[in-house]
Design a protein around this nucleic acid. Sequence first.
DNA 1: AGCTCACCCTGGACGC
DNA 2: TGCGTCCAGGGTGAGC
Length: 265
Amino acid sequence: MPELPEVESIRLALDGRLTGEVVRWARINLQRIVRRGRIELLVGRRMLSTGRRGKFIWFDFEGEVRLFAHMGMSGTLLWLGDDIEEPSHVRAVLGFTTGRLAYRDPRTLGGLWIVSDGVSPWRKMGIDLLDPRFTTAEFARLLAGRRSSIKTTLMNQTLIAGLGNIYTSETLFRAGIHPGRPARELKPDEVRRLHRSIIDTLKSAIKNRGTTFRDYRLSDGRSGGFQDFLKVYAKDGEPCPHCGGPIKRTVQAQRSTYYCPRCQR
DNA sequence: AGCTCACCCTGGACGC
DNA sequence: TGCGTCCAGGGTGAGC
């Protein structure tokens, strides 16, 4: 589910609430959601800070212990006050003095990692899209020689980390670039436009607390707001906001892509 | 090394 | 109401 803006929105909402708090107890409802380590290792430890890279979020605890979470397609982290009942599909819970942090994931495609040896859960992750080192020049370097489509390439987390299916469609539309173009054939001017579009789209989405489609919620239960600003995603057949022609849906690498055939070349 | 595909899961929407 | 089918914000690992 969540892409960079949703994960960052969750992190921002939890950071102020959890930093400095001590884990009192922990519970796992579905064991296979824990991909590495033991959740009990967190009990008694104070949370020091939060972080994010790509679509991974993490929480640093005393004693060099770090909890990583990846939400997969349907996961989220919910803050539950003491009076709030636990919703369905909660796979793990951490208890604090002021409330509980619940990992909810209906499809169980996400996971948790409890790490004390400094080893990150990802095999290879590209540069985070909000990292200042993600420049136009760096972007051009990463795209060079890539034969696959720009849509598929933007989704490749080992190159650049953070874009998923919603924001790739949106960012390509905003840059006026056809999703089927081979990545290596983009002109320098188009690379610049796309780079600008990626950063602008992500920042704007974060400002709006992400996109709510189906059941994504922020940790306090609120919806995101960026769905009101989507221009093409899930809008096949609807008029393009630029030219009025019909938005098209196509499938690339088994995922839906939405675009305007007239505005995106 | 780069690329494509099948697969991992559950739930909701839709058609009959 | 019930059943079958399709679809969904993602990542991996095998095989070419």
